[in-house]
Computed example of a mutant assay.
Amino acid sequence: MSDGRLGRVNTKALKLAAVAATMLDDYSPTEWVPLPSLGLGIRVLVDDGQQQLVATAQTGLDRSADTGSAAEAGRIYDSMYPHAGFTWPHLRAITEVEADYFGTSAPTTVTLIEPLPGAPVGDQAIADTARASSLAQALATLHSAAPESISEAGFPVEDPSRFQFQILERLDQAAATGRVPAGLLQHWEEEFEKVSLWRFLATPIHGAIDETSVFTDQERVLALSGIERLRVSDPAIDLAAASALIDPAAVPTFFSEYTNSRPRADEHVITRAELLAEFAVLDWLLEAVDSGDEEAIQDAGELLSSFNDVLFSHDAAEPEAVEDSPPSTPDTELTSEAEDVVDEGTAPDESGSADDTHRP
């Protein structure tokens, strides 16, 4: 294959297209289009004139995650959500190539899936209530299924008390850094130690909701990717991650629609989701400490201090300032600031065409 128009070839994408051409019988793609990485690795859309498929060389994934679990997760989704109003990746083929093929340190897994409709939300916050409501409905559907088939398939099952312990353990680790303001530390300790907060039944959760895994059009959520992180755990994990994708003004609609769509949800799920959303900045601090990134440590510390000021300094605000410019709620303020923590990136419609099309 060559690129006559641009005068050069994306070598790794071409290699991936060549691998994809061998993965299915009676499928010989004649065109390929490079796709954004989405943090996964090298991606191309291949087309034989009748069917388009997405090939991914998963150089960007942690190999400790079992790629084969994506296929099993897809089968579980098929059985648990036959009437869902959204779709998910359907694996058509999987193979492995030697490390030197893509210049990686270990063998690379290559997958071939059907394209997902719509496009990832990327770094553009969901500001309209229609899509916010649609995302809430999708998560309510996920969380309403019985968990037995997930545990029987060997996916993780997290006990609420164990999850609470892990959070408090991370809080102790963060406190040891000296970067968490005392007031904020006490606030989280008091909230996360409340016994009533953890009286709930764990449910199936997506487990990897982010800006690359939620596919939408202009009106609703069409697909969810990243399903290999499927597990039985706290549904608030998904809600907290999803709220970070939504404009603060639409978050109340998102939470309201979720509780309306899942009336059997435990009474504290929204409270836990809001706390976990706050906690995201603390996790960022711990990741920075683990990596030794001094600049990131400084940034995380400043963001924690800023959030502490927002949370505890309302009484100090002058009435005139409050009247002219109402302060945001702590969750809103944190969400707005924390959006900068997420790696930015956009992607075209997975099933659409692109200008950079290559023919053999």
Rank of each mutant, 00 (worst) to 15 (best):
R262I: 02
E333P: 09
L282Y: 07
L142S: 00
G345T: 08
E339D: 06
T95F: 06
L201E: 13
L303I: 04
L45K: 07
V9M: 05
A316W: 04
S161E: 11
G301A: 14
H90K: 13
D26A: 14
Q50F: 08
R5S: 15
S149H: 00
G7Y: 07
E189W: 15
A354C: 04
G207Y: 00
E191H: 15
I113D: 12
L286Q: 01
V157Y: 05
A136N: 02
D128I: 00
G122V: 09
L142E: 01
V214D: 02
L40S: 09
T357P: 07
T141V: 11
F86Y: 11
G4C: 02
F86I: 09
D234N: 13
E274I: 08
T30Y: 14
E211T: 09
S151I: 14
D290Y: 01
E193P: 06
D293P: 06
I76C: 02
A202Y: 13
A321W: 08
D47L: 04
Q51L: 11
E228P: 10
D217L: 08
E158N: 05
A138Q: 00
F102Q: 12
P263N: 07
D349C: 05
G122W: 09
P36N: 13
G352D: 10
E278K: 11
E31G: 09
D309R: 15
A280Q: 03
A138K: 00
G49Q: 15
P34M: 14
V289W: 00
L116P: 00
I42D: 12
G178L: 12
P107V: 15
L285G: 03
V97F: 00
F200P: 04
L40Y: 10
A241W: 00
I76R: 01
D128E: 03
Q164I: 10
L16D: 13
K194L: 11
I76E: 02
V97D: 04
Q51W: 07
H143K: 10
E114I: 12
R8L: 13
Y27H: 06
R231Q: 10
N308T: 04
A136D: 01
V54N: 05
L14Q: 09
R75M: 08
D128C: 02
R262M: 02
E189R: 14
D340K: 11
T332H: 03
F307E: 08
V121L: 04
L53E: 07
I209A: 04
A316V: 10
D48N: 03
L275A: 10
E98R: 13
V269M: 14
R272P: 06
Y258S: 01
T56P: 03
P120M: 05
P107F: 07
S351M: 04
T253R: 05
V251D: 02
A176R: 11
M1A: 13
P117W: 01
A240L: 06
A84P: 00
H314D: 15
G122T: 11
G68H: 03
D123E: 15
R8Y: 13
I150V: 13
K194F: 04
H143L: 09
T22G: 05
S325L: 14
G292W: 04
D293N: 15
S306A: 15
T22R: 08
